[in-house]
Amino acid sequence: MTTATDVLPRGETSERLDLDIPYVLLVWNDPVNLMSYVSYVFRSHFGYSQSKADALMMEVHQQGHSVVATGTLEKIEADVAAMHSYGLWATFQRADQG
């Protein structure tokens, strides 16, 4: 005779809760990507307005990096892949990290 296990032990739900923590996508400065290109990518991929895209691009250029998008891990991972296909230097991390 067997019985179905009803629930996971409490301690094992932490990974599921991690999904609720927002992640951020950072774009890092490099001396190769054109300013016009970076703005274009921000506008065409994320649908940002010209002023928002230009402001983010200038932040990357002047501060060395900028948080360009925030969202679930799944969304941010896909956005990073898109940024890499454009050749931008993008990374992701949990929003509560450094």
């Binding site: 054109l34 016009s36 290109y37 703005s39 274009y40 506008r43 065409s44 010209q50």
Partner: peptide, 13 residues
Amino acid sequence: LQETLMQALLGDL
């Protein structure tokens, strides 16, 4: 060449 393409694409957004 890329810069001219960007100006053309940005002008159409």
